[in-house]
Amino acid sequence: MTLSETPVASEAIAGPERRSLRHRLADRGVDRLLLLSLPASLFVLVFFIYPSIYGVVLSFRPLKPVGAFGNYTHFFGDPFLRGSIVNTFRIALPAAIFNVLAAIPLAVVMRGAVKGQRIINTILVIPISLGTVLVADGLLNYLGPNGWFNRVLMAAGLIGHPLQLLHNQWGVMLSLVITGFPFAFLLTLSYISGIDPKMESAAATLGAGPWRQFWHVTLPLLVPGLAITFCLSFVLAFSVFPSATMLGNPNGDSHVLAVAAANTAFQQYDFPMASTISVIAAAIELLVIGAVLGLRSRFYAGTTTGKG
């Protein structure tokens, strides 16, 4: 298509005045407000994209002359290092799944006008603001052999000797639930609040009891949101580090990818190898997110208001 074919364009060229930059940009589909994102783009470029690329490149430059893929072959050849993938999954996956599943019923209940809603929300949000280190510190005392948790259970006669909840995967998982659950809950709540309750009323008048309303109407509409919630919860749990070192057994079953990378970097001073571990962790996360979002696309993900 040439310009002379479109009357508007030819008129614009013939016009005596030069049109403003804003109009000329708009003709190309560019809103000049986009320029406002320039500083942020620059920031991301300098502090995220460049370091990421640097890290990836670094991972292919091992300290020892073992070839470009030397670090990768070393990682997958070493059972201890390789095992950190399994460890991470064994901690992050149950924690993320639990957080999402537990968030659903609570979000369903908290969605309407519940008395004391603000108090409950505040209680739930506190763990996020406290930070993982403080939570881990608290758990260290609470869940220890002489902590309240075991003492109460023993006093109640439910257990004969203290449960071993610290310095293994349980401790890490508990800490991930405490810090990750509020996050999953708030996200789920916002998704479920976007679903028009009239649709459940409609299902009710059509003969669906509360459970079938949830199963046939609410849940299908919530699935896309749950997928996102799971992805974010999983990513949070996958990069676990403070609670793994404090509550877990960082040289054993809690030797997760983040611990492996940190140890490699700051105890062995092998930055390329640490980069390799980080790259592997990122790749795994992307794979999981890709898989979840792939599944999500098979569900309905449009409007949730009952009106197109």
């Binding site: 009239k198 008048t205 003969g207 009891g209 109407v217 309905y300 009106k307």
Partner: peptide, 20 residues
């Protein structure tokens, strides 16, 4: 009776169709 046991049909103002 709860709505699901009344067996009435209802048409809502904004339709409340199941979008999925």
């Amino acid at each position: 009776l709860p709505p699901e046991r009344r067996g009435f049909g209802m048409v809502f103002q904004n339709y409340a169709l199941f979008p999925h």
